[in-house]
Amino acid sequence: MDNSVLLVSPAPHVRASVTTRRIMLDVVIALCPALLAATLIFGYRSLLITALCVAVAVVSEWAFERICKREVTVGDISAVVTGMILGLNLPYNIPLWQAAFGSGVAIIIVKQLFGGIGKNFANPAICARIIMLLSFGGAMSTYAYNDTVTSATPLAELTSGENTTSLIDLFLGKYSGCIGETCALALLIGGVYLIARRVITWHIPVTFIGTVFIFSLLVSGFDAIYALRHVLSGGLILGAVFMATDYTTSPSTAWGKVIFGVGCGFITIVIRLYASYPEGVSFAILFMNILNPYICSLTRKKPFGMIKAKERKAAK
């Protein structure tokens, strides 16, 4: 027998079946109900916008990595996820060149310039959305629903106090907003799928949405309908389930996630109620992304049986 064929590699010799690609694929699957809802509620252009964002994300990741002579990581599907999330965060009538620009910014500036997957300081889709909001303010805040191009969003209505959308319509997504953010039902199905597949844990979505609910309950003098409107309107559920849970830019311990989620929720509701922007989810997540390294080091687990430096000195 030829002994030279034996492979010597470090333990462990068995690995879990989960891979980066499988995790990203699960996120894509979880986003499909929202994409379907966007198509049914707004129209076929939803598909076009999302497909364009995905295509630009994948091509720009591939091109950037080829130009920089890095390992090409398009196969891990993370660029597809970024493109898809950004697409679902855009209004129905966004000019296609603007969507393509945003997707390129997300991948090249926010993700690749910081070193690629796992090294970005903030969520690429969030940053791209904020850059687009600041660059194309008009197009980014003109929402369409039922062909009435300039209808007010339920969030704007909450501020003015003229609520025209029923809670059921809010839950099903029949109102004006970004294409992927309106249908709470579809987003929650995706969220439950992600938790069931153990891709994400409940901590961030529940504490994020819970904080918004409780805070709006408090400021309205316990008006549950008002609080529910806050939860179901705008990008809260999309942000809480799919964007705030981004691995790279959120804490890995349970307590870290709780702090992160509560922080996101608090900033969201403060912006919604007291700032000049009607929506605060993107800014809230970006802000917490920046705080993430501090939350991580503050909430690091205490190793089992650890002796603190002080105790060691005292023992001597």
Binding site: T20, T248, K302, P303
Partner: peptide, 23 residues
């Protein structure tokens, strides 16, 4: 055959699986 290694995605699964709570 050992699987090919890729970049860390900071998912935290190593942290949550460690019996001793290391990072």
């Amino acid at each position: 055959t050992p699987p090919e290694a890729h970049a860390c995605i900071r998912c935290g699964k190593c942290v949550s699986s460690c019996p001793f709570g290391l990072s």
